[in-house]
Design a protein around this nucleic acid. Structure first.
Length: 479
RNA sequence: CGGGGUGUAGCGCAGUUGGUAGCGCGCAUGGUUCGGGACCAUGAGGCCCGGGGUUCAAGUCCCCGCACUCCGACCA
């Protein structure tokens, strides 16, 4: 049966086993391989290329806003990590320690960085003296290490790649503005480049970053209706600055503590892309970060003129900056169709003897499967349009998945029932107490995702304890 | 850290009452093919996860490890 033949057999259907589907896609699309160390993965060229494109896009946005890249050490002395109490409490359980060097025991053990706030603070203490030295807008691209108990490709590594922005500001207002600005950069990037719609909001005290005053988040919804935090932005106030004794002389000739932010996204985003856009034929990549945007496949390539015609398409698309590749291997066309679908290439262009006769080629969209005949003269314009159309199509589909899986509940029991039946985000009112948050986790298996910026009034009382409600909050099962 | 599952060729797996290993895919070479994972022929490829037992004999039975994986717990 044609429908069955179309399936990529190596990939488990997501309806059958979502976790297995996810792992299959990671492996069969050649994004990643397992290494001999648990939780540490090999990024294969195709997977790493996605990260490089993410980096390129984000890095340009960061720099446009005045941020500069730096690189700090991978090791943190224990005494330095200890300086901020909440911070060390949060990270100590998942630190890996270096205790030996050159065959000798170190006098002080050192932590492989799980995040770099402490190192940035140590450095900022040295270089900030005056308000004229502010703001400091630094960013670092690096890997960090957290000794997670369980791991999954992209979603939870012991070592993962990320960027961490760390900024210092003269005033609290300026730091708060930076926190929000960077959250918006992430939201804009996710929606316009990765075609992933987001819910923006604030984390509860329980869920916020260790040592932060406020943590903001962009939350996405995956195909299995679980939540993925795709990026965070923190406002630190002057807590770290006080702990690390960072001061500057202000315009009033008095000593002040600067106000700080940090913000980050990681390779976890790639997991988000897979689980937002992927389907049972494999990966589906948003065109704006796809390492290969267009794959050109010759049909009956031994026939005269086919290879040349295909090569001409490649050259013309390359000339307008499209990331295009051809596959002239001896594999059958059917094999190639399946292969590039599995790898999520947004647009396929076929050209064979029949097309050449008629002065056309055939494009196939990865998101919808739709086939479009393109007159050769209109190639450049039509490919550009189609790539945008794939982006829009992916975004619309993801947005529909998000919006149709947000439910309203007015009691813990109702929230639990909805979670069990449907999943997704469940919005309720909330009194703001930790006890109610813990009860939701304990009884309904959900954590708070965020207090969304776009608030609605669903009632006057907290559905968990019955006390007056302060805010509307989203709950969900998260990765 | 608790519970389940799996470790045999690069990948996916089979291997009966114990008798020294096989299939499919992939790979290599040659040929025929080419609009949805083509076909024929020939060939290469093995520390059966590791360590102990039992036995004339262990991929297979018994202990003890280790790794991966899924579900929890934990966790930006």
């Amino acid at each position: 049966m044609a429908k069955d033949k179309k399936k990529v057999e190596q990939i488990t259907d997501m309806e059958v086993d979502f976790a297995q589907w996810y792992t299959d896609v990671c492996k069969k699309a050649e994004l990643i391989d397992y290494s001999s160390v648990k939780g540490m993965f090999i990024y294969r060229p195709y997977g790493y290329a996605i990260w490089e494109n993410i980096q390129k896009e984000l890095d340009a946005r960061f720099k446009e806003l005045g941020h500069e890249n730096v690189y700090l050490p991978v090791l943190i002395p224990e005494s330095l990590l200890q300086k901020e109490k909440d911070h060390v409490e949060g990270f100590a359980p998942e630190c890996a320690w270096v205790t030996m060097g050159g065959g000798e025991q170190l006098e002080e053990r050192m932590c492989v960085r799980p995040t770099s706030e402490t190192l940035f603070c140590e450095h900022y203490k040295n270089i900030i003296q005056s308000y004229r030295d502010l703001p400091k807008l630094y960013n670092q691209w690096c890997s960090v290490l957290r000794w997670e108990k369980t791991s999954r490709p992209f979603l939870r590594h012991r070592e993962f790649l990320w960027q961490e922005g760390h900024t210092m500001h003269e005033t609290a207002d300026e730091a708060r503005a930076e926190t929000m600005q960077m959250l918006n950069v992430y939201a804009d990037f996710l929606e316009n480049i990765l075609a992933m719609p987001v819910i923006k909001g604030r984390k509860t005290d329980k869920e916020k970053f260790n040592g932060a005053e406020e943590t903001y988040t962009v939350e996405c919804m995956m195909h299995d209706r679980k939540a993925l935090q795709a990026g965070t932005s923190h406002y630190f106030g002057d807590g770290f600055a006080r702990a690390f004794d960072i001061t500057f002389t202000g315009r009033d000739n008095q000593l002040h503590h600067p106000h700080q932010t940090s913000w980050g996204v990681s390779t976890r985003m790639i997991g988000g892309i897979i689980m937002t856009h992927g389907d049972n034929n494999g990966l589906v990549l948003p065109p704006r970060i796809a390492p290969i945007q267009v794959i050109v496949l010759p049909i009956a390539q031994h026939k005269p003129g086919v290879v040349e015609a295909a090569q001409e398409l490649i050259d013309r698309l390359k000339a307008i900056g499209v990331r295009v590749r051809g596959d002239f291997s001896e594999n059958s066309p059917g094999w190639k169709f399946a292969e590039y679908e599995m790898k999520g290439v947004p647009l396929r262009i076929e050209i064979g003897p029949k097309d050449i006769e008629q002065g056309q080629c055939v494009a196939a969209r990865r998101d919808s499967g739709e086939k479009i005949t393109i007159p050769l003269g209109e190639l450049e314009a039509r490919v550009g349009e189609l790539l945008d159309a794939v982006h829009d199509g992916l975004y619309a589909k993801a947005k529909a998945n998000l919006m149709s899986n947000i439910y309203e509940a007015h009691s813990l029991e109702e929230a639990k029932a909805i979670q069990e039946e449907k999943g997704g985000f469940i919005k309720t009112m909330w009194c703001g107490d930790l006890e109610c948050e813990l009860a939701m986790k304990d009884k309904a298996g959900m954590s708070s995702r965020c207090i969304p910026f776009e608030q609605e009034h669903l009632g006057d009382v907290c559905p968990i304890c019955g006390k007056p409600a302060k805010t509307m909050i989203y709950w969900g099962v998260a990765y």
